[in-house]
Design a protein around this nucleic acid. Structure first.
Length: 205
DNA sequence: GCTGTACGACGGCAAGACCC
DNA sequence: GGGTCTTGCCGTCGTACAGC
C-alpha cells in the first residue's frame, strides 16, 4: 500500500500517462501453478488510481434500442472535459440504476471515466436542485418504433417486444455486416442508417 | 471526413464447483 | 440435494485515434 500511495502522489509528474499499478508474483513456478482465469492471470492484480471527477448537467435522457431489443437509457450531458476527453453522453444502464442514483433531467451530476475510458455518472448533487428537474419515467412504448416495452421478471433490463422494430432490425443488420459476423467491408452504422436496404418499410414487415 | 477498433465497466445468464 | 459462489461469455455503452 505504501508503494501504491507513492505512485498516487507522483503519477502526475511522469511524462507518460498511467492509471494504476500491477502487483505480480515474481516466481515463474508459482505463476504457472496459479494459471489464468478466462480474462486475467491469477498471479497478478491491478490497483487502479482514483478516477478524475467533474460535474455537469443532464440535459436529457434518451432510450436506445440494441440488436437484442434491450433498451438502454443514455444521459445526454452538457459537454465537459474529463480525463483528457470531452464527454457529452453517458449510459445509465437500466431503470434500477436511474432509481438508485435518483437522476433527473436538469440535475447536476458528478461524472467520471470508469477505467479512464467509459463515462460514468457517479452521483447526483441534490443540493443544487432548483425544483425544475424532471424525474425520468420509463415509457410504455419504444419512442423509435412505437412497439410495446416488457420487463422480464428478475431482470433489470427492459426489452422492445415489437418483432418488426425498425431500430432493432437496423442494429441487427449492422451486427450482421460487422467484423464480428460476416465482416462485410465498407459497412458502418452511418451506412446502415442511410442505405435504402433498411428503410422503415422493412420495419413494417 | 469517414470508418473500424480498442479500451473497461456493468448487467445478465448459464454452467460448474463448492459448501452445508 | 439445495443454495451459494465462481467463472466464462455476451451485450451494451462513449470517445479517441489510426488508417484510408
Amino acid at each position: 500500500m505504501k508503494y501504491y500511495q507513492e505512485w498516487v502522489s507522483k503519477k502526475d509528474k511522469e511524462q507518460y500517462g498511467i492509471d494504476g499499478i500491477v502487483i505480480k508474483i515474481d516466481s515463474r513456478a508459482v505463476q504457472e501453478a496459479l494459471g489464468y482465469t478466462g480474462k486475467s492471470p491469477r498471479f497478478g492484480v491491478a490497483y487502479k488510481f482514483p478516477a478524475e471527477q467533474v460535474t455537469t448537467v443532464v440535459e436529457d435522457i434518451v432510450l436506445q434500442v440494441g440488436r437484442t431489443g434491450v433498451l438502454t437509457p443514455v444521459a445526454h450531458l452538457r459537454p465537459v472535459l474529463v480525463a483528457g476527453s470531452v464527454v457529452s453522453r453517458a449510459t445509465l444502464h437500466n431503470e434500477d440504476e436511474i432509481n438508485r442514483l435518483d437522476v433527473r433531467v436538469g440535475d447536476t451530476v458528478v461524472l467520471q471515466k470508469a477505467g479512464d475510458v467509459i463515462p460514468d455518472i457517479v452521483s447526483v448533487i441534490k443540493d443544487l436542485r432548483t425544483g425544475k428537474e424532471k424525474p425520468y419515467v420509463f415509457p410504455k412504448n419504444v419512442p423509435d418504433c412505437g412497439g410495446p416495452i416488457e420487463r422480464i421478471p428478475g431482470q433489470a433490463a427492459y426489452r422492445c417486444v415489437n418483432k418488426n422494430s425498425f431500430a432493432q432490425k437496423r442494429r441487427k443488420f449492422y451486427h450482421f455486416v460487422s467484423k464480428h459476423a460476416f465482416d462485410i467491408e465498407e459497412s458502418s452504422i452511418t451506412l446502415c442508417q442511410n442505405t435504402r436496404l433498411i428503410s422503415k418499410k422493412w420495419g413494417q414487415g
